[in-house]
């Protein structure tokens, strides 16, 4: 008269039913906690990036008096940082459309962003030119960007650059080509970038290094000397020193 197996099934169903509101509630709570922590984290990392941008502007202003010749305005700049951070905080370059990365990776970039720029700012310390490239590569940020680029077509970015002439995109493409051994392309894009904005240090460095790779060592030296005279860039001076010794790898 007692059907125990069916009774046990009904009991299980009853248990699940009676615990369902609690399960749902705790699930919602967990989701809420996760969402809020992510949100707080995002807010924090956004706030951390902004002081750097302020600093960078301050430096721009300090460097202003060094504009001597109106034809060639060469100026050291920390804007390459902006290139990196602009992929994160769109607020810095509102007019620019930024390559869309998968959100998960954006989070990684953001986490790293506050660490890497100060490392670059402190390049006032004399760093051997051969270390410049590794320094950029070793900071996880560019490499993470590179990992992203693998997933999309560089031509797409080139098309975008053609349309909006954003120097950051130009620098990005130049760097991409240099890293991929396309020195001609690297030269062209660095040149284009410099013509749009001649204050981007990294662009000048890539421009010079690409020239060396293309065999135009003298021209590269001349360009660097000119840039150094206008910008007082340590990185450029180090690179020039390394050219004097031998050819960068």
């Amino acid at each position: 008269m007692l059907n125990i197996p069916s009774l046990e099934r009904r009991w299980l169903k009853y248990k699940i039913k009676s615990y369902f509101p609690y399960i749902l509630f705790s699930l919602l709570t967990v989701i809420l906690i996760i969402v809020t922590t992510i949100f707080i984290h995002l807010e924090k990392s956004n706030k951390q990036t902004s002081p750097i941008l302020v600093k960078q502007k301050a430096k721009d202003i300090i460097l202003q008096p060094k504009d001597i010749s109106p034809e060639i305005i060469l100026e050291p700049s920390m804007q390459f940082i902006e290139t990196m951070t602009s992929t994160v905080s769109q607020s810095t370059t509102p007019s620019v459309s930024i390559p869309v990365f998968p959100p998960k990776k954006v989070v990684i970039v953001q986490k790293i962003a506050p660490i890497s720029p100060p490392a670059k700012i402190s390049t006032n310390v004399i760093t051997p030119p051969s270390l410049i490239t590794p320094a950029i590569k070793s900071t996880t940020q560019p490499s993470s960007i590179k990992r992203d680029t693998a997933t999309f077509d560089i031509h797409e970015i080139e098309d975008r650059f053609k349309n909006n002439s954003n120097p950051h995109l130009g620098l990005y493409i130049a760097r991409y080509h240099y890293d991929h051994g396309n020195y001609n392309e690297a030269y062209n894009y660095a040149l284009k970038t410099n013509s749009i904005n001649n204050t981007i240090e990294e662009s000048w460095l890539i421009f010079a290094k690409a020239m060396v790779k293309l065999g135009k060592i003298d021209q590269a030296k001349k360009t660097l000397q000119l840039y150094i005279s206008q910008s007082n860039s340590d990185a450029a001076r180090n690179l020039l020193d390394s050219f004097e010794k031998d050819v960068p790898k």
Binding site: E8, R10, W11, Y14, K15
Partner: peptide, 16 residues
């Protein structure tokens, strides 16, 4: 408790 609840289901005290 499980058996008490099973008995309650059987007697109709719990509707499951």
């Amino acid at each position: 408790p499980k058996y008490i609840e099973m008995a309650a289901i059987h007697t109709g005290l719990i509707h499951a």
